[in-house]
Design a protein around this nucleic acid. Sequence first.
DNA 1: GAGTTTGAAACT
DNA 2: CAGTTTCAAACTC
Length: 806
Amino acid sequence: MDVVSPELNSLLPDEIMDTEAIEDIPHSQSDGTTVQSEPDEDTSVPMETDTPVASESGFCSDATSAAQSLITSTDSTLSISSGNPIPISISSLSSPLLTLKPCLATSTATTKTTDSVTGTSITTSGLQKLSAPFTISAANHQIILNKVASSQATEAAKSAGSPQVIKQEGQKLLVTAIGKSGQPIVLQLPHTGSKAGVAQTSGDTKSQTPQFKVVTIGGRSELKPVVGSSTNQVTTLQAQQLKTVQIAKKTPASSAAPIKFIITKTVNSKGLSPQSSVSPVIAGRVLTQNSPVMPARTITLTEPHNTSIQSIPGKKIAISPLKTPSKVTVVSVASPTPSAPQKSVTLPVNVALGQQILTVQQSTSASPVKVATSQTTAQNIKPVQSVTVGGVSGSQFKTIIPLATQPNVQQIQVPGSRFHYVRLVTATTASSTGQPSGPSTSSIPTAKPMVVSTGAVRMSVPIVPAQTMKQVAPKPLTSTAQVVTATQTQQRLIMPATPLPQIQPNFTNLPPGTVLAPAPGAGNVGYAVVPAQYVTQLQQPPFVTLASSSGFQASAGIQTQARLPLNGLSTAETTSRPRKPCNCTKSQCLKLYCDCFANGEFCNNCNCNNCFNNLEHETERLKAIKTCLDRNPEAFKPKIGKGKEGESDRRHSKGCNCKRSGCLKNYCECYEAKIMCSSICKCIGCKNFEESPERKTLMHLADAAEVRVQQQTAAKTKLSSQISDLLMRTTPVISSGGGRLPYTFVTKEVLEATCECLLEQAKRAEQTHQPQAEAERMILEEFGHCLMRIISSAGKAKVDCASINC
DNA sequence: GAGTTTGAAACT
DNA sequence: CAGTTTCAAACTC
């Protein structure tokens, strides 16, 4: 896929493009440091919405994986630990929770993985091959994160001799960290009471520091990213969705010291110095942000550098999904000192909302919200960025799925935009250093929302049962989950997308199909905005396989996959949300006339002519998107949004302009959306208001029609059932003393014979010129005779059966 | 299924 | 911003 000129980069949210945070990561992380996460019940704040998770043993059980990784789950918490080379998979049996588990078993034959140790491979419907050191798979409401470490990495880890195992028990949330191959990725739940797990990584981390950039796209403008960083860690929370944030962090230095919160705009977060915000311990902090209009802000938690190993067990930002189901909180906590090998990031994530956490390779461009982690392992470490973006109006995550290694394609879902974006990322070689080409790396202490330099990232994600999944994968187990296998060490945390309509301001400008080229000097990173349709298609369960490192043709591959049937089902069939095919003829499906285009979807199974709404015409499509956005920056935002404050009802964002339809036909967008016209409508002769008698009549008619349809459906169902039952009964089955009634013997043959008799009788009547009444009588008589014979036969059969004691 | 109506989107 | 044209969906026959 071609990368669009940097001009389009402006469309890309800063969170994505900004990579300064990564650069800021100290490259010199000397000795393999050990990060211990200590369970600190006192300081840790339990997730309110955490749901108990049953032991997940056996879900993805593998002897090797088990040996390498430890997963512990308690009632309400899960702790997952994995060795560096070990593939880490996060899966939760219960939908609301995320679980990290080794998923070797998930590999399929079609997918080829090079990791000798794990050998994890994931195949999606066999459509695409995916080989990558990391595999993330999500099942229904579950996120499965697999890390497949390259053999090299494994060897290094072995040689290092460091345990590289992080075990945490009693943690409620799981956080996924993606690192390059060989680098330990640690997903851990916050410690509830037991000892915090310890993740150790050894290796030379100086030149290679894994960087994690977390971009969360969430709710409306209310978004407020919360960044908690012990030194370079950045945590992003969506302010909108984040109403309550509890961060409990306990460090050996001081367990009780509260962490200072610095709230700054993500863009300006650079200015922060680590010291100013340094607080070794974060406990029980609650952050509440409700203002919807508030621009995204970043709360940066910084800790003074600690040379000592840190376990961030207590570090946790808990967001109550229950209270704020739409909240998305990403909190990353990293050890302040570069020496600390691992850093844990706690991510409360509302999976139910479909929010997605994306991990994106580092880009040079500066992004307000970043989570950067430096890995302790000396081996190849690729900086990974996960960006959390708070949507303006919606609480959706942005998901970036790396599709290929060179270039990698990552899918990004923008909250509220209903678009899925694919980011093209040039895979970095394992040998490549983690340092991005961007700005100086010394800027770690900068106020950037979050830079986490840790070998391991701990994430805790409270998941709320998904209520409305816009996109549901067909298979139950992996419905919303995406499994991404990347050859590189990229992290990929994919969460179900939510239908939330609103878009974050930054991503509002990120139209579907947009390909974002890396900023000059940013490296080979590009973003392609892909319609949700493709994401859904790519999310085909059980696993979505993204192109392997071998020359993946992003656009072609995606397009092909999108159109290929999966599991014998067409893409349309596999797509949970049915979409009307468009019939565009003149617009080339590149104008908002086209519903597909307007919805940020590629045309698929449409009836359009000369369609350009596909990746094959990405250039034209991008241009069209840009044109639309130039004309109306909110062109791709959902038209139906929440009303003003205090107005519970939805309403059209622009209002309708109907003149002749009375706003009582589907021409009217308000009526079509089943909402009342509001004061902003400019319609003439509007009858679409509450007291409108026409509307009431229409609604009654509609209700009546609906009832009628339901009744008919019920009647058909009942009739079908009865017929089926009758057929079952009419089957001449002679059972022991069944006491079958005569009609049981009315088989097809009997019916045919009876009909022949009746027809014969009718012929006789006709031949004898009998009057109609007499003919009918004769026929009825014959029918009676037939019935008598049937009954008689039934009786005999019953007697015979009884006589032979059958 | 063809033709008409309608209103949003696009254009001037 | 207003008027006009274009467009595709909704609707009618």
